[in-house]
Design a protein around this nucleic acid. Sequence first.
DNA 1: TCTGGGGTCCTAGGACCC
DNA 2: TCTGGGGTCCTAGGACCC
Length: 419
Amino acid sequence: MTGLADCNNFFVSCERTLNSNLIGRPVVVLSNNDGCVVARSNEAKRLGIRMGQPAFEIKDLTRSGQVIALSGNHLLYREISLRVHDVFRRYVPQTIDYSIDEAFLDMTGIPVGELYGIGMAIYNACQSEIGIPVTIGFAPSKTLSKLVTERCKKQCEPIGVMETDDQRWSIMEGLPISELWGVGRRLTRRLYEAGIYTIADFARRDKSWVRSRLGINGEKSWLELHGYSCIELEHVERQLQDSISESRTFPIDIDDYDYLRARIAIYAADCAKKLRGMRGLCKEVGVMLRTNRFHTESGYQAPQGSLSLMTYTSDTNIIADAALAILDKIWMPDVMFKRAGVWLNDIIADVPSTPSLFEEYEVREHEHSRLMQAVDKINGVVGHNVLKLASQITKGHVGHNDGYSSSFGAPFNPTTPKF
DNA sequence: TCTGGGGTCCTAGGACCC
DNA sequence: TCTGGGGTCCTAGGACCC
């Protein structure tokens, strides 16, 4: 059997651990720029507020005080997430941290009769030690455990165990196909067109029909619904991500090259810092720009590009250099951009490597890696990004709430980023 | 008129997740 | 007026190989 432990309304629950006045009231947490709703309390859900709903659509509710809207505090959520996952691990030896607020629990070898008790123990520990409510569903596969958790949340029960075929079919009959793990907006529409409305409708179709219409993933979901566990996630602590990215939507449309250049340098530096944090090196750097996708009359544009570095590196200077070079290639004058980002790909573990024969940075590699260590250490002790590339600094003429805007102008405009 | 077949690798884009 | 961010995986199509 597999368990799924899922925190309820996670971001809102985190805020409530700090401020008990929020308990029992309609609360939402907003995204960057206070743009849209990314978490809702049960009370807010009952008012009809949707996930991802733009904040301006509910401003009557927030202004009148009927709904409390908070800007996100992601450092807090990260911290609480670590503690919650620690509790899961205390009760279950083998767990997979699936997201900031969810973990799969491997219950192999544990008698079904004991699952409910273990679930209650985890629930009580999370509630009393951290103040976060969780819901836990147990079932023969990951997909089914998701369904059990979903159903428990609807019925306000903390723990559910799927033991019989009757229970399995009854849960599948009661949930719309859109709530199946792996089925998003697009597939939902396609499945509606094929006459499939509930998860049970889907499970009753022929496996070969599913395979031909939805490919390998659809077939896996179908098998999981029939009790065959076949979606594997990695048990072992995964050392490295496949990619790292940093991107932001701006509060206003931007055509100021200098401002964009500074943003790209900042995102590149932050990506490099994340990369060093997970002890990795990368070889591919990418940059993307986006115009406002809601301004359809002017045409949506999304230029992007990437380049391959000479050797694997985690050096902020090299990565930022590359990102700025890409920016110059894809930048379009007179176009108003609403969003920009940097990503790193082709990531490997940081082990001694053979430098490229043609690597111009080779000689400096050692001193740079020491420099990066020193920079990370100083920023860690003294505060957020006191040491940065000159190219990360711009005149703070664009209001921003992400903690980066500088209030002073750059005294000069170097062509290459250097500490 | 008419133009092979099978394989690998890479990339861009789509779809999904929370 | 105002619409998030960071990920993963799959697939289709192109380039290339023999």
